[in-house]
Each structure stands twice: as structure tokens, then as C-alpha cells.
Nucleic acid binder design. Structure first.
Lengths: 325, 325
DNA sequence: TTGTACGCGTTATCAC
DNA sequence: GTGATAACGCGTACAA
């Protein structure tokens, strides 16, 4: 910048004015400065500028694994909002390790990101308190934090589970199972509660054997339909079903089990029959979180907000038939 | 830092020494400084530090869409390498728009990233030359740049196509089609050349109607097997095949067409029969690119390098049968 | 309309 | 071992 000023025969400040489009510079001077900038290939050093202004126009996005399709889609959503506001976004993966998360978040904070969007690990997040007091905004996505008083954007998993189970009930199913890899995590608890709610709303009992971690155990029980809490388990059930198609029912026929999965995946409609799904749009979560965060960064002072994005049911065939017993 | 120095009763520089673990400080002084740091909740301002040192310990990753599973996986790979070296990574998506790519890259450069990893759009990349002269390292991934003299990490698509087609030929197929959405892009040209190579290596002719953009046209021709250049087209073919299963052959039976797809996807093995694939590991691409880039950042001066990562064929059933005509 | 002096938070140079 | 001071590249306040 000094060089540019020298070459254009003006003071440093004038260059600054031109670069920032500030008023009060003769068109002629402007032209001269612009020429010098061009000649020297000058580009403003953002780090210095932002050290001075105190803002970095930078966001951080932290999730389990930014290579996972769901999280990547959320990240993309955040990025879009950020771009619209001239912000750049840092990406980091925690592999679900709380200590790694802390290192990452703190490292982003020491780089003075203006805001943080986190899909939190199960650890606590007290370490964020001083950072937030120091002015770093934070929004949590997908899972609520242990931390009170912070904005959250979630998918309405309970509602989605309810809708899925109600859908199965509407087909006539009465013995419906719920399968997941972990019945204690946040998502699983939400789904389970939606499942229970739908069952009891229809006056149906829930056998303890129906909410389980083991696909085979579930299929061995007398359920006629299964709601799967995760992509992985949807796949497992479909596989188990495919290989066990010869298992005869009481009446000696091949037994069909209805399946609804939570969380969409590519080609769900290619499998035959197509896999009926309850899913949400991860990009929308990113949009919502990004918008909330940027409002905070801009100075919004209101109470913490909680956004729940709706899920939607996509019937594709794997759950659209009556119980087969 | 000033506050810390004051509270510890030492000079600024001493605090700096402690923070950076520089030698030459009494253990006692160190302890006092550490205490003050703890009390005040001090954390070093990276922006200032990096303004001073000139390095940002920051990488940029630019691709079409960081929400796309493939690119996200590459990004994750880059991130892992970066983390091992204490680097953070910026993420940006171009939506395949050259001008957006330029804005993004330049904006990252003005933030003084130490290096850039790009899955380039089709535009030219002259705009990078001054940046690279100014010391920004760059590695291109997935597609080679128009720019000479820059490191590249690619998947061996030609070899993969060759292997896929040879696999089909080994099953006895002689009329084999190649399908893609765009026969002019880099990947498509590579695949097509691998396809052609494998065909001529086996002494087989290639009918013009067999290399096409239209799934239906291909299936209407007399091919007994298809190699698909993209995930999207693999899906289209499978769909077309599923709905056209009643199309009789000359002998009146249902006609089976063998399929090999390029680019893996979740659940490829759930479809029945499983979809035979040629694929590469995107994370490996990210690893390779990250390592190359960090070497450059560290001062490596050698000639431009070109890494081609192997693909592998995963037989799953959709291509493991003889021609059906 | 333009220029001068200072400060952002840190590291680097040298003297003590 | 420790400290004063300059410098990194830029924005801001105020003077000219």
C-alpha cells in the first residue's frame, strides 16, 4: 500500500480511501491510484485490515465429519448464507471427540472468527463461555448443546418419527418395531419418543422387544413393520430382509415386513421396492443456522432461539402395504 | 498481552516468550506469567501474530460444491493432513462458475492463505499467476488446470474405464456402450479413451451409437453391456432397465444388460443385483493433495508433480454374467 | 480534497 | 534472563 501510494504520488490514506470506495477523492486521483494498484498487482491484506477493524468476516463450521454427506450438506447451506454476506467459512471435523472439538473451536476463536456453527459432540461446552463473552457468536445445529442460552437449529425428529409410525399404523400395522444403533443419543431419544407417542395415540401397546439395537432380534419377533432411526440401520434391515426372504410365515408364505427409514439417501428409490423415508433438508438447517448466526454477529441481542425444521415423509413402496401375518 | 505483562510484572516480550515456549525464561517468571494468563483468560490473537509473521497456517479448499459427497470426502482428506500440521482450512463452493471461482480464490488469497487446493472449473486460471508469484502455493485436484507448472492430483479414470470394459469383455460381451451426460468434459474424455483403448485392445469395433448421452438410445441399440461415466447416469440406466424389464429379446425372453458404473455410491450393494463399480477413494485424493501442498508451503521447489491415484473395480453382480442375446 | 500521526496485538532486534 | 522499541499492513481521527 505504501508502494502504491509512492507510485501514485499520494499519501497512504488516499490509497486506503480508493480501495474502500470512500468518498472525497478526485476522479483523477482515483484513476492514478487505481493505475498504480494495477501496475503493482496490489491486493489489500485482509489480515491487517481485520486486525484493525476487529472483525474477520469469518465463520467456523464444526461437525463430526465434514465428509459425511449430511454434514457436508449443512456446511454447504452455511456457506451459501456466508457468501451472501461476504463471509468466509472455516471447516473442521471432530470425529465425535469432545477434546478434539474443544481444540478446534478454541483454535478458531483465537483466529477471531466472528461466529461458530457447531454440530456438538456429547461433551459439555463450558469452554465456550469465555469465548462467547469475548464476543464470539455461536449457533448449534442438529443436536442441542449442554450449554444454556445459545441458539439452536434442529430437525423435528420427534415429529418425523410420529409421522412415520402413524403412516405405518394407517396401513393397518399394529406391531411396529423401532431400530437404532444407540438408544441413548439425542436423535435416538427424540425418534423413540415420537414412536411411542404415535403408538399410544393409536392405543397400541409397545412390546419391549420391539425397540432394540439388534435387527435380527426384531425380525424374529412378530413385528410386521419397522421404523429405522438411522441410515445404517435402514440398510441393515433391508439386507437382513433380503437374505431372509425365504423365512416362511405361519401360513407358509414369504413374509413381508414394512420399512420406513429416517434420513434420506441417494438411490433410495432404486432399491425395489423403493425405501419409504422420513427426512429433512440438511441445506435448510445450514441456511437457518447461518442466518441466525449472522444476525447475532450483526448485533442481535434477543433471547436464545430454537428453530425446529420440519421433516417430510416420502412414500416409496417399502411401507405401503398392509401387515402380512 | 499488555494486561498480562502488567499483571505479571514483566515486559511484553517476556509474555511473548512464554506463550511461544521460547527458551531463556526463569521457571519462576514463567509460572507468574502463566498465572496471569490464566487469571485474565488470555488467548493469543492469531490474526496479529500472523500479520507479524506473514504466515497464516491456513489452507483454502475450493470445489464445485462442498456439499457433494465426493468433494466433501476430498475436503475431509485435506482437512486431516492440515490438522496434522496445525493448519486450518477454508472451504468454498463455485457451483462450477468460473467467475465465482475467481472471486473465491482471490478472496482467499487476500486473506493470505498459505495454499490453495482447487477442483477447478473449466475456466482458465491465469488470475492465479500473480498470486502464486506472491507466494501462494496451489494444487489442483480431480481435474487438471489449464495452468502449466502446477501440482495436480487426479484419479486414474482412463485406467479405471479400461479395467471396467475389460471386465465386461472377459464375461464375453462384445457390444458394449459408454454412457455419460457430457462427452466433452475432462473426466468423460478420460473414461471414453479408456473405453476405446480396452475395446481396440480386444479387437472389438465401436459403433457410433454406443457412445452416447441418451440412455434409451443406448438400450435400444444392440449392446449387451453398458459402462456409465457418472453416478447420475448409472442410476438412469438402472432405472430404465428396471422399467423396461419386459422388453423381450429376439428370442422372446426378458433381456438382461450388464452394467458397470463409475463412482461409488452408498447402497450400491443393496440394489439387486448389486451394482458393479469402478471407483476411487476421494479421501486419498485429499490426503495426497494436502501433503503436496504442505510440502510446497514448506518451501519445496521441485518441478510440478502429477499424482494419479488408482481406481479399483468392485464386482457386485450387475456385470458378472455373459451377454444375453 | 488530501495528508499526518497513531493504534490494532503480536513478533523481532537489539541492548541491558 | 529480561526489557524497550520498531515493525507487520491497514483504518481512524483530526489537522491542513
Amino acid at each position: 500500500m505504501k508502494d502504491v501510494a509512492f507510485r501514485a504520488g499520494v499519501a497512504l490514506k488516499t490509497v486506503s480511501r480508493v480501495v474502500n470506495g470512500e468518498p472525497g477523492v478526485t476522479p483523477e486521483t482515483t484513476k492514478r491510484v487505481l493505475g498504480a494498484i494495477e501496475d503493482l498487482g496490489f491486493r489489500r491484506n485482509e489480515s491487517a485490515r481485520l486486525l484493525r477493524t476487529g472483525r474477520t468476516a469469518t465463520l467456523g463450521f464444526i461437525s463430526d465429519n465434514c465428509g459425511h454427506p449430511d454434514h457436508a450438506a449443512v456446511c454447504r447451506g452455511v456457506e451459501e448464507i456466508a457468501r451472501d454476506h461476504g463471509f468466509l467459512v472455516f471447516t473442521g471435523s471432530t470425529d465425535n471427540d469432545p477434546s478434539r472439538e474443544e481444540v478446534l473451536a478454541l483454535s478458531l476463536c483465537s483466529r477471531r472468527v466472528d461466529g461458530l456453527i457447531m454440530a456438538p459432540t456429547s461433551g459439555d461446552h463450558e469452554y465456550l463461555v469465555p469465548e462467547m463473552e469475548a464476543g464470539v457468536a455461536a449457533v448449534f445445529v442438529l443436536r442441542p448443546p449442554e450449554l444454556p442460552g445459545v441458539d439452536v437449529v434442529l430437525a423435528d425428529e420427534r415429529g418425523g418419527a410420529k409421522e412415520a409410525v402413524a403412516h405405518l399404523i394407517a396401513q393397518g400395522h399394529r406391531r411396529i418395531g423401532y431400530l437404532d444403533g444407540d438408544l441413548t443419543g439425542y436423535r435416538s431419544r427424540q425418534l423413540l419418543s415420537g414412536y411411542t407417542e404415535a403408538m399410544s395415540a393409536a392405543g397400541l401397546p409397545v412390546d419391549a422387544a420391539w425397540t432394540t439395537l439388534a435387527p435380527q432380534r426384531l425380525l424374529d419377533s412378530a413385528v410386521t413393520a419397522v421404523f429405522c432411526g438411522s441410515r445404517e440401520h435402514t440398510v441393515r434391515v433391508l439386507r437382513a430382509l433380503a437374505t431372509a426372504q425365504h423365512t416362511p410365515t405361519a401360513r407358509g408364505r414369504t413374509r413381508r415386513v414394512a420399512v420406513v427409514g429416517f434420513g434420506d439417501f441417494e438411490l433410495a428409490d432404486l432399491v425395489s421396492p423403493g425405501v419409504t423415508m422420513v427426512s429433512y433438508d440438511p441445506a435448510e438447517i445450514g441456511h437457518a443456522a447461518g442466518s441466525l448466526l449472522l444476525e447475532r454477529v450483526a448485533g442481535e441481542q434477543g433471547p436464545p432461539r430454537r428453530v425446529e425444521l420440519p421433516t417430510r415423509l416420502i412414500p416409496r413402496g417399502s411401507a405401503e402395504f398392509p401387515p402380512d401375518d
